[in-house]
Amino acid sequence: MSDSTKTSGQMKVISAVPQSGMYDEAEVSEERRNDDVLITLFQGGDQKAFRILVERYQERIRNLIYSILNRDDVVDDLAQEIFIRLYQALPKFRFESSFYTWLYRIAVNKVRDEMRRKKVKRFFSLQKLMDDADAELASKMTVAPVDYSTAELISKALNHLPEKFRLPVVLKDVDGLSYEEIAEILECEIGTVKSRLSRARAMLRRMLKPLLE
């Protein structure tokens, strides 16, 4: 028996929230209210409330990480680190912003750290030089074109976007957040979000031109 069925009807509403994509306005506000209840319970010492929060958001956070990094090998580790950070910080949560934008900010910051770490690692890695040389050699030797699926092409195109353009487009088009929410998560102006989103889409359109024709 799952926790959601064990608890009250309020909990059933929680488990009925879709994992990703666009949300109904009423559903979202209901979800937020339930988040606040769960956080209050957790701050009062109820550890089960944290499990419900995790189960509610784990897939969204995992998919967010996967969309940004396009790597499934680090998704679970990073997601767990994010929730550990959440567990440590949740007692200090003051309800000044909505919970999920706060959680997304934690997640985005963590993913940014990972990207920078990877960048530094790549810079200092001799293996990368050898890999590049091998790839160059392989590309010269390869005659037949590589047949990527559409999903792979989309992922590769996203991967080629710089971080500051990739994050808004993922948050908007993959996670379906509003401009205000994205601005809150990325801690920037709404105008900046609109501008970056526009440029990101234009870049993607150029990169995916063969797929679109």
Binding site: E59, V75, A151, L158, D173, V174, L204, L208
Partner: peptide, 16 residues
């Protein structure tokens, strides 16, 4: 139309 197609591709991205 191309931008809309790109957006649709992203929305339809298969979850983990």
């Amino acid at each position: 139309e191309e931008l809309r197609a790109v957006r649709n591709y992203l929305i339809q991205k298969a979850p983990l």
